[in-house]
Design a protein around this nucleic acid. Structure first.
Lengths: 243, 243
DNA sequence: TGCCGATGTAATGTCAGACATTTGAATTTT
DNA sequence: AAAATTCAAATGTCTGACATTACATCGGCA
């Protein structure tokens, strides 16, 4: 593991990349302790602050964790699905909000992905998943619910649907797509009638899931996508008119 | 933006979180310049190295970029699809390799997601996408191709299929799933007969895509999934026997 | 007057050394 | 033998300094 001293810029980035490669390529394995900061600064022939900046970069990506005290140090982290999901949600959220991705595009991607796990979820969903979805449907029909709370409940509903597929990789991938859309969804104001229609579709999806009817789940999702797109179109049209 | 000095641990993490929240919540907008490191260290009442560690954490997530020189500084970054994809691939790859995700689970997730964009790709793929896929099929049939090169070509083929959907959000999401599987795929050794079968399925998929037959694309993918799973099962069974 | 080069300056990048804090382990004491 | 104490190693933080970069300004020159 060596770095390029002829390019005196971004030493900490180079060091971070070198260590990251070692982890990705398996030369550093999970729970293995990295050399101490002092030792690393000797190896790379840089100062300790520079090494620390590199380590912080890796910590930000959950590639390492640090412990203080004797026999402490930096350890290769076994990245958890939760940590990976959190990162992906942050990244996806920023990507959608900063790149002016149209609501239409994001919505299409989200429902396409969700339909992808409909067959698996119809086959494998447990009673718990169904109960979670029913509970959210019930919450959504409460009067006096704010739009934001309605959206949050919607996200929980869909995550239960996705988790029902019983595939953690799928859940991890989809959490980003579903949660990242929440800020966009929050721009929509739902009338009582809108909510009733969405709730009806949620019930249709839950029923189909209970019956194990994958095709009907997918159809329900498609209908929900159409409804959502129509709502958004309406909101943006009104906004354009007003502005 | 304030931090908790009563908890004197992880000051840089707290600062990073505070700035990240400001970005995510839109209080700091794209291309806006953050205060200089000296000013930030005054605001947060910490030293400059601590501020720098916080900024490096954010830079590692592509949330900010830094420029040297007068009128330089740290700027809120417009995260690109490429950068987001690169991060997601790194995260997904580590997640798969370190969490002992079974090949079966990863494969199932990947093909489920890919089937999700089959309808869109069948409808929208351009001649370029088709040409790219045909080119990869041709490459795959070259004799003397290493297993790794064969896998790399396979990834390119599937990325063309996904890109054909014309939805950048979908492409971004799927790149992680497809590329992260490559290390797992590289564990497989392909016989000439295996390759012939895979190539035949690739041709079937390309043909269906050319004809705009979404159902047939999905069926081709399902067949390919079955073939891949069978191959993997075989490899792992032999390995278990030998070991 | 207009252009071009030299200089200034503000910012990040890096370094050295020091102290503070934490935590596990070795040591001593009861 | 168990508990309390001390020690040491490591991260976390601070101070102050210098190096490097790149923009901005100002001066000189045509």
């Amino acid at each position: 593991m060596k770095i390029d001293h002829s390019n005196p810029a971004d030493l900490s980035a180079q060091i971070a990349a070198a260590i990251r490669d070692a982890i990705v390529e398996g030369r550093l394995i999970v729970d293995e302790r990295l050399p101490s900061e002092a030792e690393l600064s000797e190896q790379f022939e840089v100062s300790r602050p520079t090494v620390r900046e590199a380590l912080k970069r890796l910590a930000a990506q959950s590639l390492i964790r640090t412990q203080r005290g004797a026999s402490g140090g930096a350890f290769v982290n076994r990245i958890s699905f939760e940590a990976a999901q959190a990162q992906q949600i942050t990244t996806s959220t920023l990507l959608l909000s900063m790149n002016a991705v149209s609501f239409e595009t994001a919505c299409e991607a989200r429902f396409s992905l969700e339909r992808a796990c409909a067959p698996l979820s119809a086959e494998r969903r447990t009673a718990d998943h169904l109960a979670a979805m029913r509970a959210e449907i019930h919450r959504q029909s409460q009067p006096g619910l704010t739009d934001e709370a309605f959206c949050a409940s919607d996200v929980t509903f869909h995550r239960a649907l996705v988790d029902g597929a019983g595939n953690p990789v799928l859940s991890y991938q989809l959490a980003g797509a579903v949660e990242a859309m929440q800020p966009l969804m929050n721009m929509i104001t739902f009338t009582a009638r809108d909510r009733a229609q969405i709730i009806a579709l949620h019930e249709r999806i839950a029923d189909a899931l209970e019956a194990g009817d994958a095709g009907e789940v997918a159809d329900g999702l498609t209908a929900l996508e159409g409804e959502t797109q129509a709502l958004a179109k309406d909101v943006f049209a009104k906004r354009a008119k007003r502005g």
